[in-house]
């Protein structure tokens, strides 16, 4: 009896092992692409892929999130074909890629407005960039100082592996000034995803957070932002970002190794086509201007 069960177990083990061995091989055979990176852009990329796979049924594209840094690291390590990033690649990453024989080629694929969001019950609905800096660095601690209720501000930020975190720090807190040393307040709660920020804002009337426009739901209130005291406050909408008046907007990128394979090129062509850019608007991001 024990002998027989041993045979069964080892047969089962062999079966499992052979499955593991064959799975990656199978994936390589068909024209499958691994796309990895920015959490902000996951919905957008998923929408592109669904539409693309309808047109090209033999194509198989797997989309995973994890953060822009994670995607770029995967491209450098050769474990994905396209890195999706909501920030530009860093010099340090380019250098490392060079050492590993990877040359990241940049494609601007869409634009995004970063929304600053609060609970709908919060009376504050417009802020200036300077006020945002003071909130997120911890200088303003109570909503009272901004004309709101007497509640301590709860700052919500993304983790450091997020392109959105890096963008917000460099372009809002540091105002694009390379010499600035402004940092998020150490009291800021670091949330693992944009969805986690959205959930906390929904349930917490003293919370303030930031994420891509695509995440704004009916349980959150996006704040209108003014460039400076006295300038008009602009609400984050697709039209305002295209017009260039919304102060916190950013380009979104795809990075591929060198020219990329035929399959990668085909997919990139689709994304940059008018058809691909039409999908961008559907998921609440902002299309780039296509040169024709």
């Amino acid at each position: 009896m024990p002998k027989r069960s041993l045979t069964v177990v080892s047969a089962a083990l062999l079966l499992i092992l052979s499955w593991f061995a064959s799975a990656p091989a199978l994936a390589k055979n068909s024209n499958s692409l691994q796309v990895k990176g920015s959490d902000t852009m996951v919905n957008l990329v998923q929408a592109w892929v669904e539409e693309y796979m309808k047109k090209e049924p033999q194509a198989f594209i797997a989309v995973t999130g994890g953060g822009s840094g994670t995607g770029l690291a995967a491209l450098i390590n050769g474990t994905c074909d396209i890195a999706v990033s909501s920030r530009q690649i860093k010099g340090q990453e380019r250098e490392l890629a060079g050492k590993k024989g990877v040359t990241p080629t940049e494609y601007k694929v869409a634009l995004d407005g970063l929304a600053v969001v609060v609970n709908p019950a919060n009376p504050v609905s417009q802020l200036t960039l300077d006020q945002l800096v003071d909130i997120f660095t911890g200088k303003i601690k109570n909503w009272k100082e901004l004309g709101g209720e007497d509640l301590n501000i709860v700052i919500l930020s993304r983790e450091v592996n997020s392109g959105t975190h890096v963008y917000f720090k460099e372009h809002v807190l540091r105002k694009n000034d390379a010499k600035s040393t402004a940092e998020f307040s150490s009291d800021a709660l670091m949330m693992p995803s944009s969805q986690a920020i959205a959930d906390e804002v929904k349930n917490n009337r003293s919370a303030v957070g930031y994420y891509g426009m695509g995440y704004i739901g009916k349980d959150h209130k996006a704040v209108s932002v003014a460039k400076a005291e006295g300038s008009p406050h602009v609400f984050p909408s697709v039209e305002r970002v295209i017009a260039g008046d919304y102060p916190i907007s950013r380009p979104l990128f795809f990075y591929v190794n060198g020219q990329g394979s035929e399959d990668v090129k085909k997919f990139m062509d689709f994304i940059l086509s008018p058809e691909g850019q039409a999908i961008v608007t559907q998921v609440d991001f902002v299309p780039i201007q296509i040169k024709s």
Binding site: G67, A73, P192
Partner: peptide, 28 residues
């Protein structure tokens, strides 16, 4: 996960383990 010196048990904190898990994906 707020990395400030904790002022009490009813305040947010960041632990050693969570820091490694949250940040390892990004590091070069």
């Amino acid at each position: 996960n707020a990395a400030s010196i904790p002022r009490g048990i009813l305040y947010p904190v960041r632990t050693l383990t969570a820091t490694i898990a949250a940040e390892m994906g990004e590091t070069v």
